[in-house]
Design a binder for these strands. Structure first.
Lengths: 341, 341
DNA sequence: GCAGCGACTGGAAACGATTCCAACTGATGG
DNA sequence: CCATCAGTTGGAATCGTTTCCAGTCGCTGC
C-alpha cells in the first residue's frame, strides 16, 4: 500500500549524470543516444514516473479540465461528461467534476475559484446566468466554455442549442399528426432551459400550431415526481389530446399521470419529451423526444476547450448544435385510432 | 478571459512584510493581530488566491481523489460518483473521473499511474480482478479503496455488497409469491458481478427455491439491448413464470421481450432487477429490484478514503453494505390473478 | 537592572520538475 | 594548427507555497 516514489534527481544520481540531462533524456530533445539509453535504464530500474505536481508548477499547466454542472446525476450532464472525458482523456487531460450549486452566486464563486489554478480550463453548464456570472467568466484566468446559452456578444466561448426551436418542432409534429389541443409541461421558468422552452412553445402557439387552444403548467423541477404532480393539474383541463414536456423526465411524469386517469398513450394522449435520454428510449411506450445532442454538445465543448488550452491566445468561439425530433411510440397513432375518436 | 493571478510574494511586497509572515498571517497560526490585518488587506486588494499547485508541491497533498470505473455513464456508477462527490467536496477535495478500460491490464495500468502523484487516493470499482491488479493496488503510493469485492485477505480497503445474497432474496421472494419456474438472466460471467450473481442464483436453486426447475442465460452485456436478445432465448423455454435479471437494464430488456410474446408483466411473468436505479423506479410497470445501496457504498468508500487521506498510517478497512429487496409492480400479483392460472 | 521567557518576524531551504545559459567536447574547414 | 561550430552536458534559476531555524523585541519576575 505504500511504496515510495522515485524522483528525477534519484534517477539522475543512479544514472550518474546531471539533473538537466536526465530531464532532457526522458523528455526527448537534445540528448545523445547513449545518454538517453543510460537514463532510460536508470528510470526503468527505479520505476520512475514524473511527478505531476512538480511538472505542473514548472510548466504552468495542470493537464486538468473542470466540468461543472448543477447536478452530476442528471442524465443529460452524464452524457456530456462522458463525451467530454472521451475527447479529453486521449489528449492526456484529466476531468475534474464540480457542482455549481443552485444559485448564480454559487456558480460565480465556482468560476472565481479558478484563480487557484488547479485546472487549465472549465466547461460549465449553468442553469441560470446573470451579469456577475458573465463577468467572472470573462475575467477567469483560464478559458471557460459555456454549454447552454449562446454568449457570443460577451466574447465567451459557448456551445448552444435551439431548445426553443426544438419545442416548436415537437408541437408542429403533434399538429401534423392530428393533435388539436396541446398542453405544455415545463420546468422552472427562471432557468435558462425553462425560459427558452417556454418561448418556443409560445411561439409555436402563436404560429397557429394549436388550432383548438393550448394550456401550460410549470413543474417545480425537471424531475419525474414534479412532472407527475404538475401533469395532474394539466390533464384536469378539458380536451387535451397531447402533452409536450420540457424534458424526458417530465414526460414520463405526464405518462404516469395519464395512466392514473385511464388515458392511453399515445391513443388518447400523445406525449413528447426532450433530451432523448436512455430512460426515454427504453420506456414503454418508447418516448418521442427532441434530441438536443448532449453527446455532440459535450464533444464540441471539449474540442473547443482543447484548442483554447493548447493555445491561450485563441479567440472565443461559438458552436451551435441543432435539435432533432425523434419520433417513437408515445406520439404515434394509427389511422384507426384516430378515426375512432 | 485573461486576468493575471497574484502570488504570495506580491502580497508580501504590498503588505511590506516577509513572505513567511504573509503565509502565516493568511493561514492563521503564529501571527500578530496587526500582521494578520495588514496582510489580509493586501491580499484582498490584490484578489489573492493561493495557488493550488505550489501548495500541493510543498504540502505533498493534492486535495484530489480519483474515481475510476469502466463506464462513467452507467447509472450505478453515476450514483456512486454523486455520493462520493457529496462526501468529499465539503472537505475540500476535488473528484477526478477516470476510466479503467475493459481489461484488468488497463485497470492495473491506471492504478500504476497513481505514481504520478496527481491525487491523494483513488476509489475504484473494477469489473474484473486479477493478481496483477491486486498487486498494483497493494503497491500504490496512495490509498486505494475498492468498491465491489471484499479484499480483506489482501490488506486492501474495500466496500463490498452481497449481490449473490441479493439474487437469492429475489428468487425467494418470487417463490414465496407463488412463482414456480424461474429463469435467470445474467450478464457476462467473467465479471465480478456476473460471477457473484450466478453463484447466488445457483445457490438459491439448490436450496429448493425453484420447485419446478430453472433456466439461465447469459447476455453479452449488462444493457437493455443485450437483455432483450438474451431474454428472447430465455423465454423460448417452456413454462417460465418469473425472470430474475442481474440488473435493472437486463430486466427491462426482459420485459420488452415478454411484451413481444404477448406476456403480461407481472400477471403472466414476474420480473425482478437489481441495483434499484431511477430508470427501474419510473418504468411501467415499476420494477421490483434488489438495491445494492450504490449511494451508500459510494458514501462509505468516500468516508474510508477521507480517513485514509487524512492519516496515511490508517489500517486498511472493510465495509459491507447489505442488499435490500424492493418490491414494486413488476413482481406483484393479486390473489385473483393467481387463481385464474 | 538584568536574566529569562514568550511572542513575532524574516531568511532560507525545501518540494520536483523544466529550461536558460555557459562551458566543454570533438570535428571540420581554412 | 587554430578558429569556429554544432552537439552535449551540468550548474543554477525558477515556478508558488510552507515551514524550519535563528534572531529580535518587549515583558515579567527576581
Amino acid at each position: 500500500m505504500t511504496s515510495t516514489r522515485a524522483t528525477l534527481s534519484q534517477v539522475a544520481e543512479r544514472a550518474g549524470v546531471s539533473l538537466a540531462s536526465t530531464s532532457r533524456a526522458l523528455h526527448g530533445a537534445g540528448a545523445s543516444k547513449a545518454m538517453v539509453e543510460r537514463v532510460r535504464a536508470a528510470a526503468a530500474e527505479l520505476g520512475y514516473r514524473p511527478d505531476a505536481v512538480g511538472r505542473s508548477l514548472r510548466m504552468k499547466k495542470t493537464f486538468q479540465v473542470a466540468f461543472a454542472v448543477a447536478d452530476i446525476g442528471n442524465p443529460v450532464y452524464v452524457e456530456m461528461m462522458r463525451a467530454i472525458h472521451g475527447v479529453l482523456a486521449p489528449h492526456g487531460y484529466r476531468v475534474v467534476v464540480m457542482t455549481t450549486g443552485d444559485t448564480t452566486a454559487s456558480t460565480a464563486d465556482l468560476v472565481r475559484s479558478l484563480n487557484s489554478g488547479f485546472v487549465d480550463g472549465m466547461v460549465i453548464s449553468p442553469l441560470r446566468t446573470d451579469d456577475r456570472l458573465i463577468r467572472e467568466i470573462q475575467q477567469a484566468p483560464v478559458p471557460v466554455v459555456v454549454i447552454g446559452r449562446a454568449l457570443d456578444d460577451h466574447g465567451i466561448s459557448s456551445v448552444s442549442t435551439d431548445s426553443a426551436g426544438g419545442i416548436g418542432a415537437a408541437v408542429r409534429h403533434l399538429h401534423e399528426t392530428g393533435r388539436r389541443r396541446i398542453g405544455f409541461l415545463n420546468g422552472p421558468l427562471d432557468t435558462t432551459p425553462g425560459e427558452a422552452r417556454q418561448r418556443g412553445f409560445d411561439a409555436a402557439v402563436l404560429a397557429g400550431a394549436c388550432p383548438e387552444g393550448s394550456e401550460a403548467v410549470v413543474a417545480e423541477d425537471f424531475t419525474v415526481a414534479a412532472g407527475l404532480v404538475a401533469a395532474r393539474r394539466l390533464l384536469a383541463r378539458e380536451g387535451l389530446d397531447a402533452v409536450v414536456a420540457a424534458n424526458d423526465l417530465l414526460a414520463i411524469g405526464a405518462i404516469h399521470a395519464a395512466r392514473e386517469l385511464g388515458l392511453a398513450v399515445p391513443d388518447d394522449l400523445a406525449v413528447t419529451g426532450m433530451d432523448d435520454t436512455e430512460i426515454g428510449r427504453v420506456f414503454c411506450p418508447s418516448l418521442t423526444s427532441v434530441s438536443l445532442g448532449s453527446t455532440e454538445r459535450g464533444r464540441a465543448a471539449a474540442q473547443l476547450m482543447l484548442r483554447l488550452a493548447e493555445d491561450p491566445e485563441q479567440q472565443a468561439q461559438q458552436v451551435a448544435v441543432g435539435p432533432a425530433l425523434i419520433v417513437r411510440e408515445s406520439s404515434e397513432f394509427t389511422a384507426s385510432d384516430r378515426s375512432e375518436r
